[in-house]
Computed example of a mutant assay.
Amino acid sequence: MFIASLYSDYYKRLWSWYSTPHVAKGGGATRVSVFQRTHEERQATENLAHNQKALMEIYLLSFSEELVTSGLSTFGYVSSGLAGIRPAILLTAFNHMVPETPCQRAVSMEPCNLTPPQGLKCRDKPANEEDLARHIKVCEDFKDGVKFFD
Rank of each mutant, 00 (worst) to 15 (best):
M1V: 14
A4H: 05
S5V: 08
L6T: 04
L6E: 06
Y7Q: 12
Y7N: 13
S8R: 12
D9C: 06
Y10S: 11
Y11K: 15
K12W: 04
L14C: 05
W15F: 15
W15H: 15
W15L: 14
W15T: 05
S16H: 15
S16V: 11
W17N: 12
Y18Q: 05
S19L: 08
T20I: 11
T20V: 10
P21R: 09
V23Y: 04
G26P: 01
G28V: 11
A29I: 02
S33V: 13
V34N: 02
V34T: 10
E40Y: 08
R42A: 09
Q43E: 08
A44F: 03
N47H: 04
A49P: 00
A49Y: 11
N51D: 06
K53W: 10
E57M: 13
L60Y: 08
L60H: 06
S62M: 04
F63R: 03
S64T: 08
E65R: 14
E66K: 09
E66P: 01
V68I: 15
S70A: 08
T74I: 12
T74Y: 11
T74N: 06
G76Y: 00
G76C: 02
V78L: 11
S80M: 07
G81W: 12
L82N: 06
A83P: 04
G84Y: 03
R86S: 02
R86L: 04
A88S: 08
L90T: 02
L90F: 04
L91K: 04
A93Q: 05
F94D: 06
F94G: 06
N95G: 07
H96R: 10
M97W: 13
M97G: 05
M97T: 15
V98H: 08
E100C: 10
P102Q: 01
C103A: 14
C103E: 14
Q104G: 01
Q104S: 13
R105P: 07
M109T: 06
P111D: 05
P111H: 09
N113Y: 01
L114T: 05
P116A: 04
P117F: 10
Q118H: 12
G119Y: 07
L120N: 08
L120S: 07
C122E: 08
C122A: 10
R123D: 15
D124L: 11
K125C: 11
P126R: 09
A127C: 15
N128R: 13
E130D: 14
D131P: 00
L132P: 02
R134K: 15
I136Y: 00
E140R: 04
D141F: 00
D141E: 10
F142R: 02
K143Q: 12
K143H: 12
D144A: 12
D144G: 07
G145F: 00
V146W: 08
F148A: 12
F148T: 09
F149D: 03
D150L: 14
